[in-house]
Design a protein around this nucleic acid. Structure first.
Lengths: 228, 228
DNA sequence: CTCGATATTTAGGCAGGCCTAAATCCGAGT
DNA sequence: ACTCGGATTTAGGCCTGCCTAAATATCGAG
């Protein structure tokens, strides 16, 4: 058990690469060098070089000119970082006064420094939450993760009521704006109107009506617990 | 104000060197290359090279073959790390179930990763403590630090009663032993007997009598609030 | 004052991780 | 089938930060 703990020590860089590749390959689809370079804000040759080392370490498989895929070891190492990151975010918000729009950079640094012990103590202090402040699901210590089914607010049928389960956004500005509208995980909203051709969406949240641009409505994910 | 915050970004290595040199030069006495190498468990040539870089960065002054001394900038950077370390230790013990003998390595890693914001939030959550769990004084955010006067338990006059203010020990084993005897900061003890020539010391702590070897009694520091 | 032990520095090397410039591959369009 | 542009990899370089081996400075003892 606890497949995410006590793994060989990896450098911060390696941890970041693995996390990035994990993010870029949701269901095993290979990630390209340039996608990784783009996400990590590094040059493509740097990624190429690191990819070679990581494949020699057995953390990923690389088909030259095609892309990379995490091995099981790589996926577990990545999930370990994701678990850390999300638990740290939850802890900082719950206990140290961080808000969901400022917590990311702090977690980004801490995730490389905390011990497995500390992570599990934070998890316990939080009561082993299932998701972080953005609604992103927290992988279990054994490496399992369950992504709740959801649909973007922009796809919710008009007239339908649903709970927000997740907000897929990282820009602080947008997060603050969404929070100011009450559009945070747990909030119950009703879709009142949708304009065609990617037009805005009108939503009722806590008795107030708001008009949201389509791109913004797209990152607000609603639960699909259909009537029961 | 807040001289300890918002300083130029230093690497983990540099931060560790500065902290080590600070520890080795209590009142400005120069620290030698080998002392630093010893404390950081590095080779002397490694230290020599780093010292050159640090002096070029203006963080210390180096008289070749004589020793190094922190500049004001270096002292502030070191104090910043000390503040972080001690606040983190206090926080982990108070809120996350760490004990004083296990908290050091965790703090050692976190001190390089936390932001100034997080440190200050932890300080606030703790109520701005003056000392960490070992009684080591926590530098203020402005860089000031006050070391309370104290004498080793081994030097306490026989018959005298005093409060333990600090325990200058880092080995977990010894810390656990001292804690098991109730010899932790805040405890009030009376020196019952001392054998000559560096012999053991008998101390009353919370109604129980314990015999302590001289080296151990030496790291237990007692307050010198003489009858008043 | 000189010698030798010890501390320190210099010289040279290596790994991690990043970069730019140059070579190479791939695949789309004709 | 060929070619051209974009993606990718290779080549080569730099900085940090560590190492060992060798040179050099210092200091105490005789």
């Amino acid at each position: 058990m606890n497949a995410l703990a006590d793994q060989p020590a990896l450098t911060r860089s390696v941890e970041d690469y693995l996390k990035a590749i994990y993010r870029l390959s949701p269901e095993g689809r290979p990630a390209s060098t340039s996608e990784i370079a783009n996400l990590l804000e590094l040059s493509a040759p740097s990624v190429s070089g690191m990819v070679k080392r990581l494949s020699e370490l057995g953390l990923l498989e690389h088909v030259p000119y095609k892309g990379v895929q995490l091995t099981e070891a790589g996926r577990l190492a990545a999930l370990r970082m994701v678990r850390r990151h999300r638990l740290i975010e939850a802890y900082l918000v719950q206990f140290l006064g961080y808000s969901w729009d400022t917590v990311h950079p702090e977690a980004e640094r801490l995730e490389h420094a905390v011990s497995d012990t500390l992570v599990e103590r934070m998890a316990a202090a939080l009561g082993h939450p299932a998701a972080d402040p953005h609604g992103d699901p927290i992988p279990e210590a054994d490496g399992s993760i369950r992504e709740p089914a959801s649909i973007p607010l922009s796809d919710l049928p008009v007239g339908e009521t649903a709970a927000i389960v997740r907000v897929n956004e990282s820009e602080p500005e947008r997060l603050r704006y969404l929070a100011s509208l009450g559009l945070t995980p747990g909030a119950v909203v009703t879709l009142c109107d949708r304009q065609p051709f990617g037009g805005p969406v009108t939503v009722d949240a806590g008795g107030e009506r708001h008009v949201l641009g389509h791109p913004l409505a797209d990152v607000v994910l609603c639960g699909t617990a259909h009537h029961g």
